[in-house]
Design a binder for these strands. Sequence first.
DNA 1: CTACTTTTGTGAATCTTTTCACAAGCAACT
DNA 2: AGTTGCTTGTGAAAAGATTCACAAAAGTAG
Lengths: 212, 212
Amino acid sequence: MSRRIPESTVRRLSHYLRSLEDLGGEGGQTVSSEELAERGQTTAAQVRKDLSHFGSFGKRGLGYRVEELRSRLRHILGIDRTWRVALVGAGRIGSALFAYPDFNVRGYDVVAVFDNDPEKIGRTWGEVTIRSSDELERVVRDTGAELAILAVPAPVAQELAQRVVSAGVKGILNFAPIRLRVPKDVPVEDVSLVMELEALSFAITQAGAVDE
Amino acid sequence: MSRRIPESTVRRLSHYLRSLEDLGGEGGQTVSSEELAERGQTTAAQVRKDLSHFGSFGKRGLGYRVEELRSRLRHILGIDRTWRVALVGAGRIGSALFAYPDFNVRGYDVVAVFDNDPEKIGRTWGEVTIRSSDELERVVRDTGAELAILAVPAPVAQELAQRVVSAGVKGILNFAPIRLRVPKDVPVEDVSLVMELEALSFAITQAGAVDE
DNA sequence: CTACTTTTGTGAATCTTTTCACAAGCAACT
DNA sequence: AGTTGCTTGTGAAAAGATTCACAAAAGTAG
């Protein structure tokens, strides 16, 4: 039951949660750390250690009750509530995200969409109207958005990051290929497709190089 | 100049490379580990340690020649060549990726696109015709695709992963929210938007909880 | 050529994360 | 109630990653 939680632990928690959901989990069904490990590509000891940071939810000799562990994890991850999300950038990536089904299911509710293309401003996506980024501060405040997804080109990402933060956003999911500078109490998660691809080509190249 | 390279090092290398590219880098311009650190949100010692895994490219008292380090990094990351990519899934995410500008620039060339929607099969995107996934093995082999991007729903991802691998693909970028089972010499990079968002809501929630 | 400044490359120290290993707890059965 | 079988929770050990700190190079100036 410690204080500082490793980033890698958090990612695994997400994964355990997904496994639990796949597992269905009617009534008093239980699951062992061993089973979770297998599904999560890790070890049983790791699963138990990860969970032990937050308390002890299992029963010895029996395992974890699926239903209970699931709701505990949702609470730990902070998704036992709805998060209001501002989507900044209504281009290709923005629209793909908006349509992403798991999104709403998991408690993320896109309450505002911004773009600076006059062609797009005023159109509606589902219930939401695309706004000019000129209105960003006002709309973010009015809608009470707490998260921002930045799906905009690199050159404008930094400016928009500052603006959403000053309008009250508490965390940013960033698709632009730059390191955003924001106050350090505002967490930023970067999604960089190029970086992922490079990790992949590195891994492939490296694997080949072992034989040399 | 060691053997096993930490995953985190690889990601930082990607980042250094991006910084070097931003830096322009005409002629004999140089950059110090300190400068790279600043841009990469890390420390100078970390930069030097990361690079030292692969040799020593700097000049003491002077730093690294931008142009040279850039091409070294491109070589290390395995992107001093073109990678032929098969894009599996022509839905929202697939099309966003296809249009992603950095993609071609960075040496990733989409040589085949697959979908199983009869509406989409036969259409062309740029130079590439969308094929039925029935033809996957043949087309992957014919085009010599080495990487696959899986942008398909979770239920079919595992099957398609196996099929691209058996057709000769050497690495997979996976957007489906499941852990793929593939031979262990085939690297898989997962991109999970939900996981990123959950890491974000955890961080925000946690930050608040410190005050309690 | 010598002194001075700068910045790398790297062992050693520190800090973090993972793995090990086992006592303690729980359920089921006799 | 006692025994057996299983699985958690957790200190302690091991492995891994980062930071420190400094000698060794390289350029520059006098």
